[in-house]
């Protein structure tokens, strides 16, 4: 045997060395896991730190909806707003109108004139005229 030669690592570790290192790693992982679990147990149901605190007695300011229709700016954000702004509707081509009859009067029926009033009265989906004491429409 050449006693002057440097001993070379043969690629193996002693069983004691491997066991010792492994125990250390397992212990470290265990500690980290326990720390994470402890932290989660303390905070899992807490609000995010940046969330604004809501006072129980804080008054709520309401504002009426902007429409009685379905789309309301707070209920349903207008996703197509940009498209709406740039959409150009074709010109509604209609022939000129004849002059509107304008008899003296202060309400719609008077302004509509006799022909239009008669046409409106002739609408056949009206209810039968109710008897006295059972009006269905404010006759004013």
């Amino acid at each position: 045997m050449d006693v002057t030669a440097q001993p070379l690592f043969d690629g193996t570790f002693s069983i004691d060395a491997v066991a010792s290192t492994a125990h250390a790693v397992v212990a470290q992982l265990h500690d980290e896991a326990m720390a994470t679990i402890a932290a989660l147990a303390d905070t899992w149901d807490q609000p995010v730190e940046d969330a604004p605190a809501v006072e129980v007695e804080e008054p709520v300011t309401y504002r009426e909806p902007d429409t009685w229709s379905v789309a309301d700016e707070e209920d349903e954000p207008p996703a197509e707003e940009e498209e709406d702004e740039v959409r150009v509707l074709p010109v509604l081509e209609l022939p000129p109108l004849r002059l509107r009859p304008r008899p003296a009067g202060t309400n719609v029926t008077a302004r509509l004139g006799a022909a239009e009033t008669a046409a409106a009265d002739a609408a056949t989906d009206e209810f039968a005229v109710p008897g006295e004491g059972r009006r269905q429409f404010v006759a004013i």
Binding site: Y62, P65, V108, A123, V138, I140
Partner: peptide, 28 residues
């Protein structure tokens, strides 16, 4: 209103309910 501006059709709607002396839209 109808006396000043009569119309052919009148619908009746309930959009709001009284809440503490004020009307509030039910959609809110």
């Amino acid at each position: 209103h109808l006396q000043a501006a009569p119309v052919d059709r009148v619908l009746g709607s309930l959009h709001s309910l009284p809440v503490d002396g004020r009307l509030m839209g039910v959609n809110r």
